[in-house]
C-alpha cells in the first residue's frame, strides 16, 4: 500500500477544525481563542521547519550537525520544563536542574538504545537518532516538569512541617523525604498510565504513524513497545535526578530550608 501524500488543501481542511475550536472559545467566552490560534500557528511553523531541517540532515551523517541539532532540542526542552514551574529556582538553577536531568537521562537511554538494542550503524544515524531523541525528550520533559513543580510547590506550602522536623534534629533528606517521594510519583504517573492503556484506549502516535506509512502493524507494535520502555526508563531516571538535585538545592550545608532560593509565582 503506497503512502497517500497530503496536499496543502487537505491540511487546510483539518485546520478548519482549529478555527472552529477558536470560534467556539470566542462564543462561549472561554478566553483561549488567541492561545489556540497561536499554538496552532506555532505547530504549523515548527513542524514545517523541522520537516525541512530533517530532510537536509538525513542527507548527511555529519556527527557535529546531528549533535548540534540534539543540543538545540535539549535547550528547548529545558526551557519548556522551566516555564511549566509555578515556583522556579532563582538564577541558573531554574534552567539548569531540569535541563541537566533531561540531558543525563535522555541521552544515556538514547545511546543505549541506538548502540545495544537497535544496533544502528553508525549509531548517530539521524533517521533513528532524532525521532527517538524527540520522543524521549518530550516525555521526559513532562515527567521532569511535573515532578519539579510538585517538589517546589509542596516544599513552599509545607514549610512549617519541614522545619518542624529539622528542629527536632532531622537531616535535610529526612525532612523532605515524603515530599520527594510524592513528587517522583507525580512525575511517573503519566508514562505509567500511557503504558497501561496503550493499545486498548489509544493507539500511540508513533505506531499510528508507522502504520499510516505502510509498516506491518506487528513491526509498528514492536517499535512502539521499545519506545515506551525507553521513555519510561528515561522519565524515571530524569525525574529522579531532577527531584534529587532540586531537593538538595532547597537546603544549604547547615540543613536549613532555603525557600529564598525559589521565586514567587510573579517574580
Amino acid at each position: 500500500m503506497a503512502l497517500i501524500l497530503l496536499s496543502p488543501f487537505d491540511l487546510a481542511l483539518a485546520a478548519g477544525l482549529v478555527l472552529l475550536l477558536a470560534l467556539l472559545s470566542w462564543r462561549l467566552h472561554l478566553g483561549v481563542e488567541r492561545r489556540v490560534l497561536i499554538a496552532a500557528a506555532r505547530s504549523a511553523v515548527q513542524l514545517s521547519l523541522i520537516g525541512y531541517v530533517l530532510h537536509a540532515l538525513f542527507a548527511t551523517t555529519h556527527p557535529g550537525l546531528i549533535g548540534l541539532m540534539a543540543l538545540i532540542m535539549l535547550a528547548f526542552a529545558g526551557w519548556e520544563a522551566m516555564s511549566r514551574q509555578k515556583r522556579r529556582y532563582r538564577g541558573p538553577w531554574g534552567y539548569g536542574i531540569g535541563t541537566l536531568s533531561m540531558f543525563l537521562s535522555s541521552f544515556s537511554v538514547l545511546v543505549l538504545a541506538l548502540t545495544v538494542i537497535i544496533g544502528v550503524r553508525p549509531w548517530y544515524q539521524p533517521q533513528y537518532l532524532i525521532p527517538l531523541l524527540g520522543m524521549l525528550l518530550g516525555n521526559t520533559m513532562s515527567g521532569v516538569a511535573l515532578a519539579m513543580d510538585n517538589l517546589t510547590r509542596h516544599a513552599w506550602e509545607s514549610r512549617g512541617r519541614i522545619e518542624a522536623r529539622l528542629l527536632l534534629g532531622a537531616s535535610w533528606d529526612t525532612a523532605i523525604a515524603d515530599i520527594r517521594r510524592d513528587s517522583l510519583r507525580a512525575g511517573l504517573i503519566p508514562i505509567v498510565n500511557a503504558m497501561a492503556t496503550a493499545g486498548v484506549v489509544s493507539l500511540p502516535g508513533m505506531m499510528t504513524g508507522q502504520i499510516l506509512a505502510g509498516s506491518p502493524p506487528i513491526e509498528a507494535a514492536k517499535y512502539q513497545l521499545l519506545v515506551m520502555f525507553l521513555i519510561s526508563g528515561g522519565t524515571g531516571l530524569g525525574s529522579t535526578a531532577a527531584v534529587w538535585l532540586g531537593s538538595r538545592r532547597l537546603f544549604d550545608e547547615r540543613h536549613r530550608l532555603r525557600l529564598d532560593r525559589l521565586r514567587g509565582p510573579d517574580g
Partner: peptide, 9 residues
C-alpha cells in the same frame, strides 16, 4: 526551639 505553632507531619 519550640516554635509558636506546632506542626505535625
Amino acid at each position: 526551639l519550640l516554635p509558636a505553632e506546632a506542626h505535625w507531619w
